[in-house]
Design a protein around this nucleic acid. Structure first.
Length: 118
DNA sequence: ATTTGCTCAGCTC
DNA sequence: GAGCTGAGCAAAT
């Protein structure tokens, strides 16, 4: 479990809520027409990929969080609680994300790691 | 292409 | 508390 710095050197463990907020913040960095993966987010946050999925499912704030821009590492859609993968794909196509064979094509997936590096 | 093992918060009982 | 369930992933087959 990662540590979460508050202020004045006060440090505590990251709560689930912290991690959820961090996840959503990172998600806001993903531009329209691109996607990222559960694993990539998880790696940055130091949590398991499953947990990222769990956050997406649990969160019930519809439009503000672009949950549909998170896909499996191989480009598979995985789940979508609001209407299933069909709807998820439809949303992505609406954003000009390229597909081949029900998978998001590689060049529409960004890792977010190299966005943070420089 | 398919199977296997790992992982961990939430949900149910 | 114990046991089951996933919006996942990587390695082995």
């Amino acid at each position: 479990m990662i540590v979460w710095e508050v202020d004045k050197g006060v440090v505590r463990k990251a709560t689930i809520k912290d991690l959820m907020e961090a996840t959503y913040t990172l998600l806001n960095l993903v531009p329209q027409g691109k996607t990222t993966t559960y694993g990539s987010l998880a790696k940055i946050l130091g949590i398991s990929p499953r947990l990222v999925g769990l956050f997406m499912k649990k969160n019930m704030e519809p439009i503000v969080i672009p949950c549909h821009r998170v896909v499996g590492k191989n480009g598979e859609l995985r789940g979508y609680s609001r209407g299933g993968p069909r709807i998820k794909k439809r949303l992505l196509i609406l954003e000009d994300v390229c597909f081949n064979n029900n998978r998001v094509s590689r060049d529409c997936i960004i890792s977010l790691n190299w966005l943070l590096d420089p």
